[in-house]
């Protein structure tokens, strides 16, 4: 959008800033984002540690090929289900593939499954939620009923139907999880939008003829961001776990690729004679899920003390 120089609007912007500061003060949010992060770092060591752990996992996923001498689908039929040893630090699986290697490559898939559909579901949720809350009326009713349908439809079933329709594969998982998860985001964003719309400065802006799009992107969206960051850190682990549920039902990542969920599900067959096969990826999932949860809790404490119910 070309930048218009409108003295009136510029005036208005300073007014807005003052309004917003007042609002922020009222909400007890007088400090900046940086201040909040510093507070998080000093008050909540666990959250910081969790953040570091997540970064380590991401680095491991990115540099997987450099960290292991094996390929993720390199079989050694003579060394099936071998226990951990110097050659295979975490043992081998049912086809003699190195478990550590599959864990590292699986991290790529699992982290992607955690992040990508969550980003998409949040985009959909934010757009629909803001439109719903801001426009109201019939549009609101339609979008919210749509959200009701998605929320009341058992999510695993919905994901299954989508996966059956699209066929297995990682893109299908992204789509299935994005479709099943947007509704709850939309609801949160809608209610935030509703309450922000009622604030004086938004009403003032509207009465002054500021374009709706400008109000939405300049004033409403930025105020939703803290809740969105928190929602994000909580939705990522749930997406990772959804992938493991799909694996249990025999759908998901295409063999011979690996993901943590798939590894746990394939490995659980050998729980009693080669427990490392399922326990190792389970532990990986557990660490990542806990890390995201603790990080999310920590962020919530500093960013958004009002968002508790998700």
């Amino acid at each position: 959008m070309p930048k218009k120089s409108n003295p009136l609007q510029d005036d208005f912007r300073t007014e807005m800033a003052a309004e917003r500061e007042a609002l922020a003060a009222q909400l007890g949010e007088s400090d900046t984002f940086g201040d909040k992060m510093r507070r998080l770092a000093s008050d909540n060591k666990l959250a910081v540690f969790s953040g570091i752990l997540i970064v380590i996992f991401i680095l491991m996923a990115v540099f997987a090929p450099l960290l292991t001498p094996y390929d993720f689908d390199e079989m050694d039929l003579m060394a099936r289900l071998a226990p951990p040893s110097a050659k295979h630090l975490l043992g081998t699986d049912e086809l003699g593939r190195d478990v550590l290697t599959r864990l590292l490559y699986g991290a790529r898939v699992s982290l992607a499954v955690g992040v990508i559909p969550t980003v998409f579901s949040m985009l959909i949720g934010v757009v629909l939620g803001m439109v719903s809350g801001y426009v109201g009326g019939m549009t609101d009713a339609v979008i919210m009923r749509l959200a009701d349908v998605v929320l009341s439809f058992p999510s695993l079933l919905l994901a299954m139907v989508i996966m059956y329709t699209l066929g297995d594969g990682i893109t299908s998982i992204f789509i299935a999880l994005a479709i099943t998860n947007w509704a709850s985001v939309a609801r949160v964003v809608r209610s935030e939008t509703l309450s922000l719309r009622e604030t004086e400065y938004v009403e003032a802006a509207r009465s002054m003829g500021v374009k709706d799009m400008v109000i939405i992107f300049r004033h409403i969206l930025p105020n939703c961001i803290p809740s969105l960051i928190v929602l994000f850190t909580l939705n990522v682990p749930s997406a990772i776990l959804s992938e493991s549920s799909l694996s249990f039902l025999g759908i998901g990542v295409q063999l011979p690729k690996s993901s943590w969920g798939l590894m746990v599900n394939m490995g659980r067959t050998y729980l009693y004679n080669a427990p490392w096969l399922s326990l190792v990826p389970s532990a990986a999932i557990m660490l990542v899920v806990l890390a995201f949860n603790f990080l999310g809790d920590g962020l919530r404490d500093v960013l958004d003390p009002h968002l508790k119910n998700s």
């Binding site: 682990p237 969920g261 746990v264 659980r268 899920v289 949860n293």
Partner: peptide, 19 residues
């Protein structure tokens, strides 16, 4: 205690069930 309460949702439910 928060860690313990979150443990059940951090491991795929079928693993918890099998254990």
């Amino acid at each position: 205690f928060m860690g313990f309460s979150l443990l059940g949702v951090s491991i795929p439910v079928f693993m918890v069930a099998m254990l």
